[in-house]
Design a protein around this nucleic acid. Structure first.
Lengths: 233, 233
DNA sequence: CAGTGGTCTAGACCACCGG
DNA sequence: CGGTGGTCTAGACCACTGC
């Protein structure tokens, strides 16, 4: 019988997953109450709750008070990816990390960048162009605007010791951010820097980072040809 | 005093977030035990546990038995994005969804697709080329291989009624998948289908979907120029 | 080995919201 | 209104792992 089974929220979760996968519980269908499941599994309701809450977070179930718990119709598949810290990403592949700063100056950002950084005055801020390399080969080209009004210390930073990326990670406790992926064809300047063909298809990641209520930095990462972001769910 | 505060795991979480943001608890630093925090917040240890577990899941804390809980050094920033169901994505923008199947045939997949689908014999499977449109304008071009050995029913499916995408979502309970983002330049065929310039930079999403132990489908989505995937963390 | 987080329990109350 | 999930509690035992 089922008396001797190991009970835990993971066991419950696996069992529920199995019932859904095998279509014993079909999409859209109501499943038993927590109380019933607790009896059935021989565990406390809190344990069932833990299991089902996890599945709801994952998008496999939809729960509402009084209405009960249903198998999600369109399993809201969510994939996660970790924000790459470039040096770690490169060294993690056993390659040698390097970078070269092409440009560092104060510049008035274009309107779209001003908007992203929520600057309401056209004022010069720190602008950087950096190429990161793996085993001396171009890896990713970074164009970065730093809200040096919010982070004045950045003007004294020595980016020869620590890359802009890492300096910011160390000095500013990021709070959140926005990410945008897109594809572009390499311009002449970009092709020259990344040593690829003009017009080659490249992956772009744009990121705006918050701290508290302030927008700290906007960065556009242009990856070398063939670069892929991989994730799993 | 702090007697009358509302107590809940969310309150605890907010407070811990605040302490981290304000650097009262610095990166790498050990924070008090659950028991101490429970006393401090005037709640049960389970409540503190719930709060801290959430923050650890989010990558803001690192917890180990006996070693205690530390503020993460490199807040493992993870971003989530939801897998778009194309029709919903388009209709969600108030546009009219449509699609046109260019090709539907049995074909022996190339080696890389065979590998992705874990087919160990060169055998013809279902191959589809579909263009999805928003307000009749090209939105995304889909190239799809379906493991029709694992899902024989698909051979009888009427994709005029339901798009391949939605047919699969309805008929097969997906279990998980792999995702890859990259950028490419449009080929002549692709440019013709998407009505864009040859060589234009496009975003590509490749997806392999599992069900149980079986690989169900491999799909390559080529988005129209300017398409962006957006997410926030 | 002993301290810490991880989990489970039985019971309770509450918030929400469908009928 | 009443049923359902959401949360909290006090206490307990366990699993891992640093010392």
């Amino acid at each position: 019988m089922t008396e001797d089974e190991r009970k835990s929220w993971l066991t419950v979760q696996d069992e529920v997953r199995r019932l859904i996968r095998q279509r014993d519980w079909k999409p859209g269908e109501l499943i038993p109450h927590e109380a019933d499941l607790a009896r059935e599994f021989g565990c406390a309701r809190a344990t069932v709750n833990r299991a089902l809450r996890g599945l709801a977070d994952a998008g496999l179930l939809e729960r509402r008070r009084k209405a009960g718990t249903r198998v999600a119709l369109n399993p809201v598949r969510r994939a996660e990816f970790s924000i790459p810290i470039i040096r770690e990403e490169i060294e993690g592949k056993g390659q040698r990390f390097g970078y070269r700063i092409f440009l560092r100056e104060m510049r008035v950002p274009p309107p779209d960048v001003q908007a992203r950084l929520q600057l309401n005055v056209a004022q010069p801020i720190l602008y950087l162009k950096t190429l990161y390399t793996a085993d001396s080969r171009p890896y990713v080209f970074e164009e970065r605007w730093i809200n040096s009004i919010a982070v004045p210390d950045v003007l004294d930073a020595d980016f020869e010791v620590l890359s802009p990326n890492e300096w910011l990670v160390r000095e500013v406790a990021f709070d959140g951010g926005d990410f945008t992926f897109s594809g572009v064809a390499a311009t002449a300047e970009e092709a020259a820097i990344l040593t690829c063909r003009v017009g080659e298809g490249l992956l772009v990641l744009e990121r705006t980072t918050r701290h508290g209520g302030l927008m700290i930095t906007y960065v556009r990462l242009l990856f070398h040809p063939g670069y892929q972001i991989h994730t799993r769910c």
